[in-house]
Amino acid sequence: MKPESLVGLLMVLFLAALFVYVVEDVPAFGDKYSPANRYVKLFSIDAEGLTESLEAGKVPPAIKNEVERIGFNKENNFPTLEEGAYEIERNEEEGGWDLLIAEGELYFKEPLKYYFVKEEDGKLTIYRYNWPVRVLEKAEEETAVINTVTAGLADYRGYDTMFEETVIFSGAVCVILLMRRRGRL
């Protein structure tokens, strides 16, 4: 066994072990609450007086300041929870409230799910909705493409696919330049 093929074999075994770990670590398909694609927990505060104001449709200043302190503020160009800028919707199936904010986009004016306030045994925990939730819920109406994967690939991330296609194009051009004799380009 020559040393370089031994290195190759070790690399294969290492990658195999890594792959087995990844396969074991991936959450089951369709698991709604697998961490990455639903929402990310921001912070939680005790809810002595806040639930009433949430019911009334107003975000209490305690939550607003904490959210801004974390980083979702004007400087990092996130829409902030000003008075008229948000709407609160009761989210029955997950037992909490959705905070919707309408970003000033040119073509999509409907409000967008930004934060999710969950109420558990006297404590309010604030979650931040993730990008996949927006794509899954808004892809149909925004891009009218039936297949959300195609919407994600060709429409939301059209730039990536454009340059991916340029990569394939340049691959073909390189093979043409390399393989053909000078006379017959």
Partner: peptide
């Protein structure tokens, strides 16, 4: 089988 084909392919 993945591992078997990988090792066989390089040897």
């Amino acid at each position: 089988f993945l591992l078997v084909t990988a090792i066989a392919a390089i040897t």
